[in-house]
Design a protein around this nucleic acid. Structure first.
Lengths: 340, 340
DNA sequence: TTGAAAGCGCTAACAC
DNA sequence: GTGTTAGCGCTTTCAA
């Protein structure tokens, strides 16, 4: 194994000069830098990660805690993970993958052993048991999602409440007066996952303010459940003309079900969704949607973490709520004249 | 930060004794072990990962290279990753997540810096450019998938050729004489991904041997493409009564398309798939399938890697091909009497 | 069964 | 602008 002293000897400089040439933490003459770089290349030198971590107390590794529970759309998690890894690499960091099941012990372990410098935690619950722990750790962390009491934490998320509002407003503007929200599976609400609740709040609030009739329906992630939801909606709200879907897994089967029940989308029923843009755009009837910006969330999370790791940096904002972006597609249209 | 010397002092022993008590690499008297363990607990001691890695030249971290290209079913990747992380933890290892995009440089980097002890590489191509590199690294690796020339490598995969055969044999036994394979998206074949090709070989070989008429149709991962494939199949093979689907994304829409074209499953058309069991079992018409055992593959891969890391261990098998397990469900039935 | 001590390869304070 | 050197916290010989 080639080590820093080998490079130093080969380049005719001291080990610290090699180290500084690599880190840029002190000025090096152009001439020396070139010699060092040549030697590094020639010898194929790679600094030993463990030695580095020990000497600098920085591992340059981030922990990512990924959720794998039911009710969470897998591609979204994956896309987010990819974005985190990619962004971390741009900042010269690697990513250690932890599963939710590892739980609080896992977080404590990777932090206390100095395996990682910082942590990203996804799928935060309203009253997440990991919060006290994260506050207690001596390493910075960023949450994807908002707990009920985010004090002292750094949180990033889509503004789900605004997203719910945005969908309703869009439908209101098109003249719809009766709307329904088809939401996440019941267990997501039972766990009191923050984002699902916020969509409901935004949806209901906006509907109330606009004087619209509204209802909310959690829905399992299966085509059969979608079908049942569709039937129930039409039965309970015969005047229904606008639907907001916050459930990736049932978006397509739900539209199918509506059409099989004799309703044209968007002719009879306008549908909007909160979901990844690729999903909304790829359906048979491209769906008007508020984007779930996984990639941007990942970038933001890593960016914030990097700022927190910068000793000298100014404090980072506690809350980053990405404003909803609604893209109009083929699934929404003005309400047909009643009786027309 | 509590360090090993603090524990040693507190327990009234030497640092090496603490180290050995932790690693079990030499016998410790019951009495001493208890004292050490008490001190560790009392002080909340956690060995520093970097220091450990430096002194022992073992990081206890595995690299997992996950594919994110198009044509790969995301939930399968995710399930596999989870299984790798979970199994690795059982062996006291953590998992570093690398994206395919990092490419060969990424592999070389994490190996050469001693960030990881070993590597797991998914989505191996028939002529994978990473193979020479992996052979060259001084760290063990395991491939998920089989390259054309697996010499000297350790590979794990479902026996896709046998899986293709198994599906055809099942259909043959039910009396079907004309079969079609709806396969992965074209780009998967263009990349010459090993597993996709092998299914085709198994499928075609078994059909030929049984004297069945057969055809193969790559298919994009969209409902529209599924619909087109269904129409084309019926047009080109009017006698078709058996279909094998090796494409998670289109399994459901394909069945829908067949039924909309007036064919009952399994009445007129028997359908089998190669896909995760959960997917096959969850469809409206539960599908007879050969399971894609992501979880078991992940376990196997980690298990093999651990054996390779055991200095004293005997050599591990180069090839591990999991035999196909076919589960009969509601989508296959004996061929209806012709003209009935 | 235990202890002493020499590294592991790097960083960063200190000195020039 | 560069060199010297003392650690970083642990593992593992070597010695008892």
């Amino acid at each position: 194994m080639v080590k820093i002293t080998d490079v130093a000897r080969h380049a005719g400089v001291s080990p610290s000069t090699v180290s500084y040439a690599l880190s840029g933490k002190r000025p090096i003459s152009e001439e020396t830098r070139r010699r060092v770089e040549d030697s590094i290349r020639e010898l194929g030198y790679r600094p030993h990660a463990g030695a580095r971590a020990l000497a600098s107390s920085r591992s340059n590794v981030l922990a990512l805690v990924a959720p794998l529970r039911t009710g969470i759309h897998v591609p979204v998690v994956m896309q987010f993970a990819v974005s985190v890894v990619t962004t971390a690499r741009r900042h010269d960091h690697d990513v250690l993958l932890l599963t939710q099941e590892e739980g609080e012990d896992g977080l404590r372990r990777v932090a206390d052993t100095a395996l990682v410098d910082a942590l990203i935690v996804m799928d935060v619950q309203l009253h997440d048991p990991r919060l006290p722990l994260l506050r207690d750790l001596d390493r910075p962390s960023v949450l994807i999602g908002f707990p009920a009491e985010p004090d002292g934490m750094t949180c990033v998320d889509l503004d789900f409440r605004a997203a719910g509002e945005r969908c309703v407003e869009h439908l209101a503007r098109l003249g719809h007066r009766t709307v329904a929200l088809v939401g996440s599976p019941p267990e997501v609400y039972v766990r009191r996952t923050a984002f699902a609740q916020r969509v409901v709040q935004g949806f209901t609030g906006a509907a109330d303010r606009a004087g619209m009739a509204s209802s909310v329906h959690p829905c399992e992630a299966s085509p059969a459940a979608a079908r049942r939801a569709a039937e129930r909606l039409l039965r309970e709200q015969p005047a229904l003309t606008g639907v907001v879907v916050h459930n990736e897994a049932v978006l397509e089967p739900l539209i199918d079900a509506f059409e099989q029940l004799g309703l044209r989308v968007p002719g009879d029923l306008s549908v909007t969704a909160i979901c990844p843009d690729e999903l909304a755009a790829s359906l048979r009837v491209p769906v008007t949607s508020v984007a779930l910006p996984s990639a941007e969330l990942g970038e933001r999370a890593v960016g914030l973490l990097m700022r927190k790791l910068d000793a000298g940096g100014e404090p980072v904002p506690g809350a980053t709520l990405l404003p909803p972006r609604l893209t109009e597609r083929a699934s929404t249209a003005p309400r047909a004249a009643p009786g027309a």
